[in-house]
Each structure stands twice: as C-alpha cells, then as structure tokens.
Design a protein around this nucleic acid. Structure first.
Length: 133
DNA sequence: TTTCTAACA
DNA sequence: TGTTAGAA
C-alpha cells in the first residue's frame, strides 16, 4: 500500500530543504542549470520525488567535494540515480549508487586520487540512502 | 504560511 | 549564493 515508487512526486521544496540540507535557492538553481526537473503542482509549486531527493544529495556530496556544477553534470550524466534502466535488466545489485565508472575527467577532478574520491562518494551516498529508507 | 519568478547586492 | 519584491 505504501508508495515505494521512487519516481512519485511527493515533497515540497521546503521538505526537500530539510531532507537535503540545501537551501531552496540552491535547489532551484540546480534545476535552472539542468541537473533535475521536478514535477509541478497545479499551482506551479515544485514537487520532488524520492529519486530527485537522492539526486540532490548526490549533487550536494559532489559540490562539497569541490566539484563545480559543470563537473557534477558530467558525472551525473554518466550515471544518474539508480533509475530502472529500460532494456530489461533483472537488477543485479541496486546497492551500487552513483559513480560506477571513473573516466578521464582529468581537469574536472580537483584531486588525483580518483579511487579515494569514488570511495568517499559511494560511502556518503550509501549513508544517505540508508537514512532515506 | 509557503512557494514562485525575477532581479539586484 | 543570499535576499527581496510582489503575486499565487
């Protein structure tokens, strides 16, 4: 009965502010630069789905690690959120969050240690995910 | 009260 | 990014 669909729009921007620790200004700005596109209520208010909250947490994690929004965009394009990929994939390990394949983003990475970066990102994402449950 | 858009510091 | 103005 409980709605578990991660794509169902459920939260107002105010709720998302508390859930993510981001300001409404930041949340709207990330939308402006094309990082996400939340649903809208009849009154034009933004409504965020659990998946978008998760995405926002990923963005927060990445920016906190020194990525600018352009870098965040590139990374998220490689692997958005754990969205169900069309094609009929059974679902191996929905555990693995975002960043799965580091690539040659030399100038985008503020550090040389990609593995460490990836590890830190996955750790924070896993935590956020567990808390979100 | 909360959120929206637009715009300025 | 913060913050404000005026409108839903």
């Amino acid at each position: 009965m409980r709605q578990t669909d991660p794509d169902t729009p459920l939260y107002s921007i105010g709720v998302v502010e508390r859930l993510t620790g981001l300001t409404a200004r930041q949340i709207r700005y990330y939308e402006e630069v094309g990082l996400l596109e939340p649903a809208r209520s009849p009154g034009n208010h933004r409504i965020y789905s659990p998946r978008e909250v998760d995405l926002l947490l990923s963005i927060k994690s990445l920016t906190n690690q020194g990525f600018n929004l352009e870098g965040v965009r590139v990374i998220l394009q490689q692997r958005p959120t754990g969205a169900p990929q069309e094609g009929g994939e059974p679902e191996p390990d929905s555990r693995s969050p975002t960043l799965g394949h580091p690539r040659r983003l030399s100038s985008l990475y503020p550090v040389n240690n990609r593995e460490d970066l990836q590890t830190r990102l996955e750790t924070s994402l896993r935590k956020a995910k567990e808390e979100n449950v």
